[in-house]
Design a protein around this nucleic acid. Structure first.
Lengths: 129, 129
DNA sequence: CCGTATCCACCGGGATACTG
DNA sequence: CAGTATCCCGGTGGATACGG
């Protein structure tokens, strides 16, 4: 099985496993620890900053801000600020962001389905023989 | 929207966004930089260590070994060693590993489809206005 | 050929403190 | 409320050298 690198590989039938391949860069981005969870937390609808922070247990303010900025830059979320006091900012998935939900959902489901198997495998592997 | 940990709607387990949630741990694992590529590189069939190293451009020996060990521990790949000189080791996806290909493929396809959009969005975002 | 061991630079990311 | 700014520690991962 040979896939091309986002179809922009110099050599036809090029390898998606090439360094610096744009596809790999995107994979890195959406594969990061928090992006997946933010997409899930944004789910369907709009959420304020503090709401997201509450939903995603364990995320720091810094990482939430940073992740949202990256996602905004990548066109995955929109940021709407209401100039009132106190400030109110709302985040929302764009169409592109929404379209990510499917693939990520599939991954989450895989995790759920195979959780038991993985944990068992780990115990077996860790058995001192 | 409240989703429960392990996706089981309404109840035991709690929120998937909770710290230490097993689902999150698995997500972290398969979401890592190299696992995705190893699954792809193993594709359909068996591959030797050096073969994988060649296919996945940019991976270091250390990281390939480490990733394969983790995957073996998680029950995603099998490792077969042939005691000959020079040594020969072959890796192969387990059924569980194979079942990961679908979800990951979906992610890769998303990347390819949205690559252009993301790069454009980035340029717009980076415009000094 | 297929690793393991060691050293080390880098940076992701938490804690904390401060603004509009 | 929703950030920005700083400091700083620990882990990730590359480079290199050696072993079965």
């Amino acid at each position: 099985m040979v896939t091309t690198c986002a179809g922009v590989s110099a050599a036809p039938g090029g390898d998606p496993y090439q360094q610096g391949c744009p596809t790999r860069r995107i994979l890195d981005r959406i594969g990061d620890r928090w992006t997946v969870l933010v997409v899930g937390a944004l789910g369907d609808g709009t959420a304020r900053f503090s709401e997201l922070k509450r939903r995603i247990e364990g995320i720091s303010q810094k990482m939430l801000t940073q992740t949202l900025r990256e996602m905004e830059r990548d066109g995955l979320v929109t940021r709407t600020m209401y100039a009132q006091v106190p400030v109110r900012v709302e985040y929302q998935l764009t169409d592109a962001g929404m379209s990510l939900r499917g693939p990520l959902k599939a991954l989450e489901e895989w995790s759920i389905e195979h959780l038991g198997m993985v944990m068992t495998a780990q115990q077996v592997y860790d058995q001192p023989s």
